[in-house]
Design a binder for these strands. Sequence first.
DNA 1: CTCACCTACCAAAACGTTTTGGTCAATCGT
DNA 2: ACGATTGACCAAAACGTTTTGGTAGGTGAG
Lengths: 339, 339
Amino acid sequence: MAPSGRVTIRDVARAAGVSATTVSHVLNGKGAVAAATRERILRTAAELRYQANPIAQSLRGGRTGVIALAIRPLDAIGYTLQGVDYFVRLAGAAATSALDHGFGLMLVPDLTRRSVPAAMNLDGGIVVDPFVGDPVLAELLDRGLPVVSTGRDPARPEHIWWTDTDNRAETRRVLDLLRERGARRIAVVAGTDDNAWNHDTVEAYLSWAHEHGQEPILERVPEKRGETAGAEIGTLLLSRPNPPDAVFASTGRHAASIARTAIALGWDIPGRLLIAAGSDSEQTRFASPAITALDLSPEATGRLAMELLLQRLAGEPGSAAPRIVPATLHERQSTARPH
Amino acid sequence: MAPSGRVTIRDVARAAGVSATTVSHVLNGKGAVAAATRERILRTAAELRYQANPIAQSLRGGRTGVIALAIRPLDAIGYTLQGVDYFVRLAGAAATSALDHGFGLMLVPDLTRRSVPAAMNLDGGIVVDPFVGDPVLAELLDRGLPVVSTGRDPARPEHIWWTDTDNRAETRRVLDLLRERGARRIAVVAGTDDNAWNHDTVEAYLSWAHEHGQEPILERVPEKRGETAGAEIGTLLLSRPNPPDAVFASTGRHAASIARTAIALGWDIPGRLLIAAGSDSEQTRFASPAITALDLSPEATGRLAMELLLQRLAGEPGSAAPRIVPATLHERQSTARPH
DNA sequence: CTCACCTACCAAAACGTTTTGGTCAATCGT
DNA sequence: ACGATTGACCAAAACGTTTTGGTAGGTGAG
C-alpha cells in the first residue's frame, strides 16, 4: 500500500502480478487482456478495495466532473426565503440529472464578490436567471467554460445557450384568462430584479394592454422586500380612484399577500377582484382562496439546462438552443368565475 | 504555451528566465526569492494570465477543496416543496461559509441510490437531518471522510460530530408557552421521517404530558404528504369526542393547513384553539392568523456545521462537538391570548 | 521456412503542480 | 584567511492515473 494509506493501481498490479497498464486496461475495458488475467485483476482489485483516485484521473483527462450552479436571484438577496421552492426544485432536478451522468453539481454563491477559491476547477456552469449584463455569467464565459443559463441575458444576445419558458406568451395567456373571466382593468405587479423574466413580463403586459385598449396599471416591487411590500402595493392599487378588477403578480408570494390585503380591505375574491400569479409556489396553493398560477416547471428547466450543457461537454452536435419549456396554468379559486 | 492551449507554470518560468520551482515559490510565498526576481515573475505571470491548474494542485496536495452536502429529507421526497425554505437557508449559509474558506459545496442527491460518479472526490461531507442508521452518512464515513451532520443519527452514538438545536428543550418551551396561554389539552402532530428531530419531539412531548398529567394526543403525518394531509389530521383531531384546545405541529406547513381546516370548521384561532409550529416557514408567517413558530436558525446551523468540518480538515483541536444552536420562538397571533 | 499478423502484455511518458534536496556564490565570525 | 552560514536559485522526484509505443511469442498463409 502507498505511504498515504491509499490503495493505488500499482498495489493492485503488484498483487495480481501484472503491470499497472494492464490493470488500467481491465478496469476501463480498453486493451486486449486474457480472460483469466482479467478475472484475477478484478478479484484482486475488489479484495484490496481499490478505488481509482479521481484527481489523478482528472489530471490526465483534463476534466473534473464538476459543474457550477449559480442561482443569481438568491445571490442578490442572500439566500433568504422568497419564491424559494422554484429554486430548490430546479437545483434538485439539475443535481439529479448531473449525478446520473457522472457529474457533480457545485453551489457557487456569487463568484464575483468573493475571491474564487483556487481549488475550484469546473467543467461547466449553469446560471439561473442572470441579470442583464450579469457579471457571474461573464466570469464563467471568460474562463472559457461552457455555460448554459436558465433565462437569457438580454445584454448578451450572442449567448444562445439558455433554457426558459416563453415568458411573453405565458404572460399573455394569463392576461387572456383574466379577460375571459370578465376582467377589464388588469393591473400587473412585477419584480425589480433586472432580468429577462421581469422584462418580458412587463413588455408583454404593455403590448397586450395596448392591443386591448386598456390603460396599463403597472407596479413594481423589489423581490427582496418581504410580505409587507405586497400589502402596501395591494392597498395602493385598491385605493386608486379607478381600481383594477384583476391583479396579475409575477411572484406567488406577492400575489398571495396582495390577495390577503384585498380581503382584509373587504374585497371579495374572485367576486370583485381576480388574482393570478406568474409563478406557482406554496403560497399560491396555500392562500385562501387558492390562487391561479403558472407552474414554470422548474424541474424541466433544470433538467433541460443540464442536458444541454452535458451535450456540449460531450461534443455532441447539440440540439438547437435556446430551448423553450412549456408552463402549466393551474386555475384555482381566485379566478373561478363563470365566463 | 502547452499544446493544450493552457498556460502552465513552465511557460511562466521560461518567459521569466527562471525555474518552475522559483515561480511556484513566488506564487505561494514559500522560498527565499530576490525582490527583483519576484517582481519579474509576478509581472510575467500576470501578462500570460497564468492560473495554476487546480487539479494538479489537488493531486499533489491530496485535497480537492470540495465538500458534499446531502439533504436527506429532500432525498426522501425528491426535491419537491415541503418546508424547503429551511433547507435553502441552511444550504446557502453552508455554501457561503465554504466559499469564504476556499472550499466549494457540492450537492449530492442520494449517494446510495445511484452509482457514485468516479469524478467525485471529496474532502468532507455535511449530512442534513440523517435518518436513523442513515446509509449516506455511513457511506461517507466508510470512505474515511470527515463528516459533520446537522442533527445526530440516533443509531450511531459514537458519531459526535453534529450540530443541532436542542429539540427536546425547544419542544418543551413551546408546550410551556401553550400551557401558559391556558391550553390544557395539547395535541402534537409530528412527521414520520425516522430522524432525530421527530424522535426528540415525540419523546419530549410524551414526558412533558406525563409530568403535567395530560393524556397525550399524538398524531403523525408523513412529510411527503401534501397539504391535504394536514386537513385530514385537523378534521380528525377536532372531531374527537374530547378535542384538543391547542395543536403543536412540527412543520410549519402542517400547522398552517391544520389551522386553515380548523377555521373552516368554525373554530376560532386563537380564541378556541391555539396553534404553534416547530419550524418557522413561509406558511406560518403567511397564514391568517399568523402562526407562532420556532425559528430553528438554519443559517447558524449550516454555518456552524461547515466551520466544525473545516476545523477538522485543518487539523485544529476542534471545539467540542456536538454543538447546540439556540432557536428563537416567534410569538404570533395564533397563540395571542392574555395569560 | 519465412513473413506477416495477431494476442497478451509492459515500460515509459504525460498531465501540471509542489516539495525535497541539493549547488554555488557571497557574507559573516573568528 | 578559513570554515560556517545564508541567500538565491534549480533539477528531479513525487502525486496516481491513462495513453503511447512498444516487445515477445504464437499462429496462419504462401
